[in-house]
């Protein structure tokens, strides 16, 4: 009898646990569906309409018109090019620099390691507005720190964010400083987890530091590198607050990104939600493609 009753109780228990699990998941699921899935679906649907402030956001279906306009829009292409520049420059720089710093500090004593982690992580925990305001002051044309130092050293003041050629590099520098904190912490942790016996064995066998790095450490931190690359890519594609606060996309759209243009179209100029959503959809597809390529390349074709 006992052998027949035991599985029944177990089944009831299992079912109860399952129900409880789903109940625990419910709040998160509610917010995920309400604030992520629903807006995402609505965004895709709206991109095929002429929804704007003028029609209460309740546009009519206009097929691919927004997408056709988008591919004919020179400002969109300029913004797309700027976005690509930001991604192509920032992702390798952030990844390589973080790995370098991580490699340099992970072997340090606990106190020194914590100090450096704090230094590099500080811009991450500092509010983005505060960070950009400080950088804006440093870049300021007339009384900024950088131009003060340059002129004090006998040089000519630089136009920084005033120049169409320099402005995007000003954006990239800030993006770089605010993006490296988390990857450095991750790399320090990942490098700390590399099997030291493998490293010691290789060193005993006469491997150079470079060989140890490429043959042992690099493969070990590859999952971290993949994560860092994808997250930095997504963040770079979505660079918005920094541009809104620093350059507002100028001069002459030289720092306008797709994300910033999207905001401008939706909330500042045309208030054309359909067109802005079309940009959002295209941006999402591009990010997805970039992420998939990174996944493929960095994992050598295997994702397991």
């Amino acid at each position: 009898m006992a052998t027949t009753k035991a599985p029944k109780r177990s089944l009831v228990l299992q079912r109860r646990e399952t129900v409880v699990s789903y109940l625990f998941l419910l709040p998160a699921l509610f917010f995920f569906v309400g604030f992520v899935i629903y807006p995402m679906v609505m965004g895709v649907i709206t991109s095929f309409t002429d929804a704007s402030l003028a029609n209460g956001g309740q546009g009519t279906f206009i097929g691919l018109s927004n997408y056709i306009r988008l591919f004919q829009d020179k400002i969109f292409w300029k913004s797309a090019l700027n976005t690509i520049i930001i991604v192509v420059v920032s992702v390798p720089c952030v990844t390589a620099f973080s790995l370098w710093v991580g490699s340099a500090i992970y072997k340090m004593r606990s106190g020194a390691r914590s100090f450096f982690r704090c230094v590099f992580y500080l811009p991450v925990v500092t509010g983005s507005v505060a960070v950009v305001v400080v950088w804006k002051w440093m870049y300021a044309k007339y009384d900024g720190l950088f131009n003060y130092l340059i002129t004090a050293a006998g040089g000519d003041a630089l136009p920084w964010t005033e120049s169409a050629t320099m402005a995007i590099w000003c954006v990239l520098i800030i993006l770089f400083t605010t993006s490296i904190g988390q990857p450095i912490v991750l790399y320090v942790a990942a490098l700390g987890n590399v099997d030291s016996s493998l490293v010691e064995a290789a060193q005993v066998d006469g491997a150079t530091n470079l060989q140890v790095f490429w043959k042992i450490k690099w493969p070990s931190v590859m999952p971290t590198t993949l994560y860092v690359a994808i997250i930095t890519t997504i963040n770079s594609f979505q660079c918005f607050a920094l541009i809104q606060l620093l350059t507002r996309g100028g001069p002459n759209y030289s720092t306008s990104t797709v994300m910033y243009l999207l905001y401008q179209i939706a909330f500042e100029t045309e208030k054309n939600f359909g067109y802005a959503d079309a940009m959002g959809v295209v941006l999402a597809i591009v990010i997805a493609i970039f992420s998939a390529v990174q996944f493929k390349v960095m994992n050598g074709g295997t994702t397991e």
């Binding site: 992520v36 807006p39 609505m42 965004g43 939600f273 959503d277 999402a284 597809i285 990010i287 992420s291």
Partner: peptide
């Protein structure tokens, strides 16, 4: 999951004009 994450993150802002 990677595709869904990317889509969520970027379309979310654009769509918030109708939902937030």
């Amino acid at each position: 999951l990677a595709l869904a994450l990317a889509l969520c993150l970027s379309v979310g802002l654009a769509a918030c004009s109708n939902s937030s």
